[in-house]
Each structure stands twice: as C-alpha cells, then as structure tokens.
C-alpha cells in the first residue's frame, strides 16, 4: 500500500476517534440539579436539627396514617393477644393486640368513650384501625359500633293495624318490615324531593328502601324494624 494513503487514513481515523470520544463523554454528563446539598454547618445548628427531626416525625406519622387500614366485622374469638373477626367481606381476620399500643373505644352517638379490653364481647361489631405487615394486622384502635345495612323492593302486602309491610326485594327475597315510632319515614314527591311521611301513605306496588341495624352478620335477615324508610310511589318511576 502506498505509504501516503496509509498516512492519510491513519490521520483521518485518529481525528475522528478523538472527536467521537469527546462527544461521548459530553453526552454522559449529568446536568446539575437546582437543589443545593445540605451544608454541614446547617446540621450542627440545634434548631435546624430539631426542625429536621420534627419534619421527619411528621412525615413518619403521615405515612403511618396513610398506611393505616380499617377492618370491620363481628368478634368471633377473643384471646389475650388477638381477636378473630368475621368481616363484612366474608372472611375471617386475625387481629393482633398490643397491650401498650391498642386502645379501645365505644361509639355513643356523636362521641366516643374509652373502654377497657374486658368490655370486648363476642358478637360485638367492631372497627379496627391498624397496620398490615407481613400478613398480620396489628390493632391501633378498636371501636365497638353498630352496623347498618339496607334493602329495597316492591310492597306486596300491607298491614295497617300492625304497621307492617312485606317487600319482595330486588334480591328476590321476602322481607317483613315493621315500622316503629322511631322509624324516620320519607316519601319522594312528584317534584323529586323528599318529604316526611306516614305509614298510611304507603301503597301496594310502591318501591320502598329501608335502612336497619344488623344484629348479626351471619344470620339471614327476614324481618327488620328500620331506622329509615323511603317510599317511591308506584307512578313515579314509570311516568
């Protein structure tokens, strides 16, 4: 090969290699971020340390609150270190108790009162707040509360003497509804708003929605005394 051609190619390749290397190094440079690193002198300041500690504690508390879950259901087993709960989702949940950490309350109207662990009884409906870790659920707070459910259906029979009615529910069940003095009765009027009502305004063929307290999750419901009753007159939905 002619030595001049070889020299020409060698020089070209050398310059090309040097230029490419420079470009590659430039392309891998990470752009500087706008956040400045914390200076060592800032950490030596007690106020800064306290603020940092408070901020960390706040973040941890927020994370704990964020991770906190609620399990609701009926107590079926009570042991010194754990409870077993039949949940509303239909599964059994074991709840670990911590003598130092777990607190017990009872919901009474618009307030909650602290109670003792011995006040926990089988069959009680409870709301348990806690953290789920490695498959176990540890209770922070346990609230004894009342559980409500609802059903709706069409009125098939009325007994004005005993203030009872029979509903064929949309689940295809038959439900006997006993209206009590404590039952709040409302009717959907022609203008589409709710108004207070009485039993005598209910007619066969009307649609009725009821909300009632549940005494046991596992017992099938065939008769209820509702807390709330809402009537949709027969003609309202078909107009």
């Amino acid at each position: 090969m002619n030595i001049r051609i070889a020299l020409f190619l060698l020089l070209s390749l050398t310059v090309l290699a040097l230029a490419s290397f420079t470009v590659m190094v430039h392309a891998q440079d990470v752009p500087a971020t706008s956040s400045a690193p914390m200076q060592a002198t800032e950490l030596e300041d007690p106020d800064s340390l306290r603020m940092l500690r408070d901020k960390l504690a706040s973040v941890v508390a927020e994370l704990r609150k964020k991770d906190e879950q609620v399990v609701a259901g009926e107590v079926r087993v009570i042991e010194p270190n754990y409870l077993e709960i039949d949940t509303i989702a239909g599964v059994v949940q074991k709840v670990e108790l911590d003598e130092a950490l777990t607190k017990y309350f009872r919901v009474v109207g618009a307030a909650k009162e602290e109670i003792e662990p011995k006040d926990m009884v089988l069959g009680a409906y409870v709301l348990v707040t806690g953290l789920r870790t490695d498959g176990s659920f540890t209770a922070n707070e346990i609230y004894i509360d009342e559980h409500f459910d609802s059903k709706a259906g069409r009125v098939t029979e009325l007994d004005a003497t005993n203030l009872t009615l029979r509903l064929e529910t949309f689940d295809k069940d038959i439900l006997t509804v006993s209206v009590a003095r404590s039952t709040t009765q409302e009717l959907l009027n022609a203008s589409g708003t709710l108004e207070a009502s009485i039993f005598s305004r209910i007619k066969e063929g009307d649609t009725v929605h009821v909300v009632y307290a549940v005494s046991s999750l596992r017992t099938p419901v065939s008769a209820v005394t509702p807390t709330r009753l809402l009537v949709i007159p027969m003609g309202y939905l078909s107009k």
Binding site: R4, L11, V15, A19
Partner: peptide
C-alpha cells in the same frame, strides 16, 4: 506527504463536525 497529511486532517475534522 504534506498534502496527504493536510487532506487527512481536513477530512477528519469534517467527519468529526458531522458526528
């Protein structure tokens, strides 16, 4: 030889600019 060296440098710089 001098012409070959100069041409080699020019071509190398041109290719480098393109890259």
């Amino acid at each position: 030889s001098i012409i070959a060296i100069v041409l080699g440098l020019v071509l190398g710089v041109a290719v480098a600019f393109a890259v």
